[in-house]
Design a protein around this nucleic acid. Structure first.
Lengths: 208, 208, 208, 208
DNA sequence: AATGAATGAGTATTCATTCAT
DNA sequence: GATGAATGAATACTCATTCAT
């Protein structure tokens, strides 16, 4: 009765905790051994729980990977909202600072843990058509965000007035993607990569 | 014995032909239904051959996908060599023409048949670690080629002298990758994509 | 300790009540969805109790179905004893009246609720050998009762003196069985069925 | 080329043979251990084949039991057609002879191998609703046949003119059913059972 | 050389039962 | 006493691969 008013009892909290742990363990397994090579038993064993327990928390193997991706997508979109939302800045200085923050945030997410790009870019798309579509949705979402960001830059007069924001957004996201993939093999090159990306973006490659 | 000197007898030719057809059929299946969802029986059925026959031409399921990827890699590197090799040009005009040719060729390969990027980027990396490494190798190769191309551009004075060719190459390849992925959903936007890519590359996005 | 002498305390009564409800719920489930398709969780959910609670009242899934069958067998034998016991009548008129009463009673039990024949004839025998034997025991019991009834009829001079009571009893019970099964699909035909059964029984089908 | 005209090659014949053996083995298993207690592996092991082979011949476990039942139904209807068809006789003597033949045939099918009634009456109805319906269909079919047989008897003046053929048919079939069930425990009583059945049928049980 | 019948390793999933709370 | 979270034994089914014909 004391804490019955709170929406979460201790049992409920325990439950959410285990749910979280299962998602994490599944992420580990899928990223390390691959979705198809991972059995539910592997995920359960990693947590030291019975594999029947898994099915108390998730419908089936396909279900968990959706939640794993949800989780990653949440992390990424979290990095691109709030203070980093396209319209959260209004001066050039702020714009530049935001630009740097976004780069850093993405760099941290993708670069710190190579399992993130591995799962999202290498494992997920091959799971099935529905998942491939989810990843494409994610690219579309990212393109829309970047486009909004560019539009804002054009409005501020910071970027070229004739910029094709939509397609340029996709090109820039492609560069970020390339950085993420590079980081799978050469994590140490990430800073230089980001710098190169920024230079291409702002200055192009042509001699003046 | 009579014709053992000749590299290819009629039987041998037949054999090579079927081998080729199996690779193509496997490509079709893998790209359309996915590697794991495709059975050897599906590939054989598409050709109207017995599925036992498959094993007379390829070791196993894993073997064939390697050959499918070989085939695609060959097509891509083919587009980037000969007249499009990094050092095949020596004037700015040639350099620009080559640049356009490469863009066109890649656009054709990736854009004309969405199954190519789908297999190479969405299916292959998730098959297993070895295949993921192959795809990363492919990215490295592409980066090396692009870097050589950029170096040449710098030497010619066409590109910025302080260009970080290695990392810029990866950024540019990332943009190409982004274009290829975009083409999965919006093939009609490809031309505009390429144009945006080129403008970013040569001019950057900043207002002057 | 205080009321250990009394056979039923309030708690004990509660317990018996829930026990009864579990049996009924199990009967419902088994008859509607089938024994194998029914989970203990289904039975518990129907009562709104936790499925762990089930095991405080019954040993296991196999145990409960025994009790469900017990219950039905009790209902049936109840209809065939007391005033309907084979030797409860002594005149032809009483015999006839008893005959009608038995028919009515069985008709009510089997006909009113098709789940009774469904469980007893369709579900139970397939559960396992032991249960099949129980059902055969039930047939034997019914045959013995009917045989006693026929013997009595012979003694009263109401039935043919040369009647093979044992085997005729089984034949008659077979007809009742047939009626019960028919009622699964055509409950409305039950009265006509019973009439036809009686006519065959008493008059045969041959023209005179 | 020699025998390519024949619809069945040796391979095809082999295939049909194994198919037949699987049905028989499944019948054995289902009748002896029960449908649910029987695994596909059991059926395969009984034949000394790999259990994967089973799936080359039947869709799934549910599929095979349908074929087993088909087989039994075929045997039974076979006994009730041709010379035993309701309208295959035209004189009283023939009618009686046919009656005896049918009794004999059914007695042989049900009595010789107790696994037949066990599977059909004890196992099949509890498998699932669809199978229960099949069994009810079988009862309906049998009732229709018996009714036709009785109608014919009425026309011939052999049976009571006021006979309720439909319901009487079901009563009679019930007696046959009773005999079949009895034979599970007392196969030796079958002849006496049949005789009692016939006497009830033709003469009734009442004293004259 | 081609075939496809046979094979069985491998795996996702269910559900009766237990037991700590 | 009641609960339901945890468990893992059990099993149907798939499909890559082999090999006799």
């Amino acid at each position: 009765m004391t804490s019955s008013a709170e929406p979460v009892s201790r049992a409920e909290r325990k439950k959410q905790e285990l749910r979280r742990e299962i998602i994490d363990a599944a992420f580990d397994c899928f990223a390390e051994r691959g979705y198809h090579a991972t059995g539910i038993a592997d995920v359960a064993a990693r947590l030291g729980i019975g594999h029947g327990t898994f099915y108390r928390y998730f419908q089936n193997k396909r279900d968990i990977v959706d939640h794993v991706v949800d989780d990653l997508v949440g992390r990424i979109t979290g990095a691109l909202t709030a203070e980093n939302a396209p319209d959260a800045v209004s001066t050039l200085d702020e714009y530049r600072a935001q630009s740097a923050r976004i780069g850093e945030a993405l760099g941290r997410i993708f670069g710190e843990d190579p399992r993130v790009p591995r799962l999202l870019l290498f494992e997920a798309p091959g799971i099935d058509r529905a998942m491939a579509e989810r990843i494409l949705d994610l690219f579309d979402l990212a393109a829309a965000l970047t486009a909004a960001y560019l539009s804002h830059g054009v409005e501020l007069g910071y970027l070229r007035a004739d910029l094709d924001v939509e397609n340029t957004a996709r090109a820039i996201n492609g560069m970020i993607l390339g950085t993420a993939i590079s980081s799978l093999r050469a994590p140490e090159a990430q800073a230089a990569q980001s710098e190169a990306l920024r230079r291409v973006m702002y200055d192009g490659i042509a001699a003046r």
